[in-house]
Amino acid sequence: MSDHVNGAAEGTVANKVPVTITVNGRTHRADCEPRTTLADFLREDLGYTGVHLGCEHGVCGACTVQLDGSTARSCCMLAVQADGSEVTTVEGLAEDGQLHPLQEAFWNRHGLQCGFCTPGMLMTACELLADNPDPSAEEIREGISGNLCRCTGYQFIVESIQEAAPKMRPAT
């Protein structure tokens, strides 16, 4: 893309920006307004509706994705900023029809109820276990405290992450 894009003068239609982005291994190219957030771009333009919007102001964590290897809140980024990036969403966790160990553990342990916070919670838990392969319950609570859940009271989420941890640890 060019380095400067006119968003919209008063009352005119905005210029759109081409954005190229790789999501869950597939490269997409689409045009969007500069003001479009990464979350809206993933949901509306690319169809990754597993990315959920719970607050659009960077508190609830439901829109959390992996961006170039670490978690990011996709509501707190513009799509244009992610041009050329690699993104993983919840849709990219399961492979070949097999649930990811965290997905399996959340299912076993009732780590979700309505499921709205779940995609963000899973993405955060992935990073948490990568950084700390054997966390205590308190460390898990601290690690997911940027992801609000209104249904579960968190206990079964903590137990789910504990159950998944040994399965995600690299063999020693």
């Binding site: 893309m1 380095d3 894009v5 006119n6 307004e33 500069p34 102001h57 244009v80």
Partner: peptide, 13 residues
């Protein structure tokens, strides 16, 4: 909660 429109400039230096 959608931003008002703006121009975007990606700084090169």
């Amino acid at each position: 909660m959608k931003a008002a429109a703006f121009d975007y400039h990606r700084a090169t230096s």
